[in-house]
Design a protein around this nucleic acid. Structure first.
Length: 843
RNA sequence: GGCUUGAUGGCGGAAUCGGCAUACGCGGUGGUCUCAAAAACCAUUGGGAGCAAUCCCGUGUGGGUUCAAGUCCCACUCAAGCCACCA
């Protein structure tokens, strides 16, 4: 009985043992200082929100990063592989309401639970650099940055119409509104409210954020495109239209000033100041405009602004086209947005689809002012929005090409002082005020006499009060804490009140990765010299859901710090990798769908190695992964096979000298079965090393890396008798098994540590050298080459791998099946792709 | 409506440069071991025809380029993601 137990792979015994040993060695996963002299490598996975439970998406994310970190260590790099907690945020307050637990307590106990899970799976984090954003040691630096940015004019306060989630009872950034719904509450419509809010001037960096994307070649094209669309730059012209019998002017923004002779109306957004002024004197108009505003609001809220039924109201007033003095009617339209461009457009129904639809509905004239460049071409049907035509019906500008006319008309506007070139961005400033408790207090004071007064640096941090009652009341919870609110003004010493808004938690995650490099620093967010050594991040890994929010804010923050001389890099991360989602039964894992698989369950049943290795094996890391428990069982069976294989032969492999192994000798081609078998296995081994190394260096298809190791193990197992009998010499057995274990190390750290020890490996396998593939050994003597006739596969012939094209051709023509096929026919051509195929063109 | 991905056996997926389609794993079938089972191991597993050797068909659909296409080009269908009267 005892013997039987001994030959069973038991992760439940192996894994806790190594957890203890790893925990006892704080240097194992520790980053070293620059003075180590090794090349640095910073691999970063996105820090989780401490919900209390690791989910499979986390496990997948961290398994990818962990494999990379371990590989880089074995390649001799100085690796920084940190982990932390995005620990502020609303769920802690909701939990407080529900369970009557203080947010801090709830959050910290969740962190402890998730950390235990991470340790159990065996991720190689340097816990000495752990960052927890809800602790004053961290958030004080949010406040410090806030003050610095305030000094530089990058923070400002304004009354603005904001997105308000009634469920969160707080403001949301534009990025947090998804189709009119709250990003956290998928069923809650976001409302619009007017509030005094704090903003970060991210638009000051709009152009640089856009330009920088071109240089981020190590980022997924998908992410770069999404950011480009989000920044939404468009180049055009602003033109002033005078209003008949009134002093106001209407400024419109257009990208197609070349079509201005086709403008047959001006359309204003319902919230345009001129509309408000006109409506004030016209009760009928006022009611109708209110209706339009309502329609817009409803459309925005339901997320189909794109399908809003176009609807407008004539004001009865006229605007003067400055180019031809033509009066055109001024309308108010529900499809014109106040928060984009100037909130007013010139309507050119002949050359814009939206304007066309509107003009049709209200019988506004439609005019052709652009014709195809080719005079023989048929006149295209209106609306014709192509930009490659020439101007017609445009007075003195007839005959100019569109792009030419755009420049010319713009110059005319500038000279006439009624317009100018303009660039409009879709990107808005980042609203960071939140009327919540569990966040970083904004370090500002409102004094009756001195107005806004920043909290002096030496008074930081502004501590979040610990004792607070969380209620469902609206407004800032902090405003109900008298001790917190009532202060003396730092300037005049008079009575004053603290700002009670807290910061958006995306502030926390915009710079956390710098803090990792110097996590204990009590004098500054980090030491610039240390950050300069580690930055930029060599590889950032996370979910695509952060492609816009987090990744654009992080880029902004880095540029701000650079301009303040804190860092030298323009971008936070050199390379970015977005992993796919983990799905089950065709849907994303979620509680509501009841298809959640718990990592703890998997670890208990199959072990941590099998769980994380399956997460890498089931799909390439950038694609969605369909979780199938049978697959985890399969990986676990494979690991058991590896374990038994090494157990069977470890005595044979252990303690032998490596010097005399036959890989350095001339292979015995014709006979000695031992040499043949050994050589065959060594060849497979070196092919596998090459394949996996290549994948780590580029493609990252870890699923095929695992498959390659499986193939190697299958071959070793098939040669089991030779391995045991001495037919394959002990030093070769030793090299085969030790290398196999090294190759497994990035994917299955527990098993490889155990087997490394079993095979007499010295020290931690993490410090062992990554194997190097010997190209001579990896190369096949003979290769199989397909022979096609007219593109159809007929035969496979064996040819020396270094044969020349003539030999390929001769081998193909010598094949019996080929001979039979071409008998009596003419071989018109022979195409040889050396090493790949031979194709005979036969007539 | 725009942009970006993707579509390969019963399932997850492989084929990295245009050169043997389906590696590897799951599942299935048959077997060895066992009193029996589990585990493990061995064999087999895209479809069709045939006793067989063998032949034919096959990577969402339709065209094209090429000696050769899962891979490149064009058009389309479906699915996922992002943006969306953005002037």
């Amino acid at each position: 009985m005892a013997d039987e137990k001994e030959v069973r792979y038991d992760p439940a015994a192996i894994e806790p043992k190594w957890q203890q040993r790893w925990a006892a060695d704080p240097t194992l996963y520790a980053a070293e200082p620059e003075s180590s002299g090794k090349p640095k490598y910073y691999v970063l996975e996105m820090l989780p929100y401490p919900s209390g439970q690791l989910h499979m998406g986390h496990v997948r994310n961290y398994s990818i990063g962990d494999a990379l970190a371990r590989y880089m260590w074995m390649r001799g790099y100085n690796v920084l592989h940190p982990m932390g907690w995005d620990a502020f945020g609303l769920p802690a307050e909701n939990a407080a309401l529900k369970n009557n637990t203080p947010p801090r307590e709830w959050t910290l106990s969740n962190i402890a639970a998730m950390k235990r899970q991470m340790l159990r799976i065996g991720f190689s984090y340097d816990w000495a650099t752990e960052v927890t954003t809800c602790l004053p040691e961290y958030y004080r630096w949010n406040q410090w940055f806030f003050l610095r940015m305030y000094e530089k004019g990058l923070v400002y306060r304004k009354k603005s119409r904001v997105n308000w989630c009634p469920e969160c009872a707080t403001v949301l950034a534009n990025e947090q509104v998804i189709n009119g719904y709250c990003w956290r509450h998928e069923d809650t419509l976001v409302e619009q409210r007017d509030l005094e809010q704090w903003f970060f001037r991210i638009t000051a960096y709009a152009q640089e954020l856009l330009d920088g994307l071109d240089k981020l070649e190590g980022w997924p094209e998908k992410v770069r495109t999404m950011q480009r669309n989000w920044i939404g730059r468009s180049e055009g012209t602003e033109i002033d239209f005078a209003v008949e019998n009134r002093s106001e002017k209407i400024r419109v923004f257009t990208t197609r000033v070349d079509t201005i002779f086709g403008a047959t109306s001006v359309q204003l957004a319902p919230e345009h100041p001129l509309v408000t002024a006109l409506a004030a004197a016209d009760a009928g108009l006022k009611t109708q405009v209110a209706g339009l505003i309502d329609e817009q609001k409803k459309a925005k809220e339901s997320g189909n602004m794109g399908e809003i039924e176009k609807h407008g109201v004539p004001t009865g007033h006229f605007a003067i086209n400055p180019y031809n003095r033509e009066p055109i009617p001024i309308w108010v339209a529900n499809y014109v947005l106040m928060d984009y461009g100037t909130g007013a457009i010139m309507s050119v129904p002949g050359h814009d689809e939206r304007d066309f639809e509107f003009a049709k509905k209200y019988a506004i004239p439609i005019r052709r002012v652009i014709a195809p460049a080719d005079p023989n071409a048929e006149e295209p049907e209106l609306p014709f929005s192509a930009e490659d035509g020439v101007l017609v019906n445009s007075g003195e500008y007839n005959g100019f090409a569109c792009t030419q006319a755009q420049k010319l008309l713009q110059e005319v506007a500038v000279r006439g002082a009624f317009g100018e070139a303009a660039i409009t961005f879709r990107l808005k400033d980042w609203g960071v005020s939140r009327q919540r408790y569990w966040g970083t207090p904004i370090p500002m004071i409102h004094c009756e006499r001195d107005g806004l007064v920043p909290v002096p640096y030496e008074k930081l941090p502004v501590l979040l009060p610990e004792k607070i009652e969380i209620t469902q009341q609206g407004g800032s919870p902090l405003s109900r804490v008298a001790d917190f609110v009532n202060v003396t003004c730092p300037k005049c010493g008079g009575p004053a009140k603290r700002e009670t808004d807290t910061m958006d938690t995306f502030v926390d995650s915009s710079w956390y990765f710098y803090r990792y490099t110097d996590a204990k620093n009590a004098k500054a967010p980090f030491d610039p010299a240390i950050a300069q050594y580690w930055f930029p991040i060599d590889q950032y890994i996370g979910g695509v859901e952060h492609a816009i929010l987090h990744l654009i804010y992080s880029r902004f923050w880095t540029k701000v710090m650079r301009d303040q001389g804190m860092v030298k890099n323009d971008e936070p991360a050199q390379r970015m990798f977005t992993q796919g989602m983990v799905i089950k039964d065709g849907a994303k894992m979620s509680k509501s769908k009841g298809n959640v698989v718990s990592p703890d369950d998997m670890v208990e049943r199959y072990g941590a190695d099998a769980t994380r290795m399956y997460a890498l094996f089931a799909a390439p890391p950038d694609r969605d992964l369909d979780w199938q428990e049978d697959g985890v069982a399969g990986v676990s069976r494979f690991l058991a096979r590896v374990w038994r294989l090494v157990e069977r032969h470890s005595a044979n492999a252990r303690g032998e000298s490596v010097d005399s192994h036959p890989s350095s000798k001339e292979p015995s081609k014709d006979g000695a079965p031992s040499g043949g078998a050994a050589l065959k296995l060594l060849r497979k081994l070196h092919q596998t090393i090459a394949k996996i190394t290549q994948d780590f260096e580029g493609r990252w298809h870890f699923n095929t890396c695992v498959a390659a190791i499986m193939e190697l193990v299958n071959e070793l197992q098939a040669a089991d008798a030779q391995l045991a009998s001495g037919e394959i010499p002990a030093p070769v057995v030793r090299e085969l098994l030790r290398t196999l274990v090294l190759l497994l190390a990035p994917f299955a750290p527990y098993l490889s540590a155990e087997l490394w020890e079993e095979l007499g490996g010295e020290g931690s396998i993490l410090r062992a050298q990554w194997p190097k593939s010997d190209p001579g050994l990896a190369k096949e003597d003979e290769i199989e080459v397909p022979v096609q006739i007219n593109g159809k596969l007929i035969a496979v012939v064996r040819v020396a791998s270094d044969a020349d094209p003539k030999q390929f051709e001769a081998a193909a023509l010598a094949d019996e099946k080929v001979k039979a096929r071409i008998a009596g026919k003419t071989v018109a051509n022979v195409i040889v792709a050396p090493g790949r195929a031979v194709n005979l063109v036969v007539k």
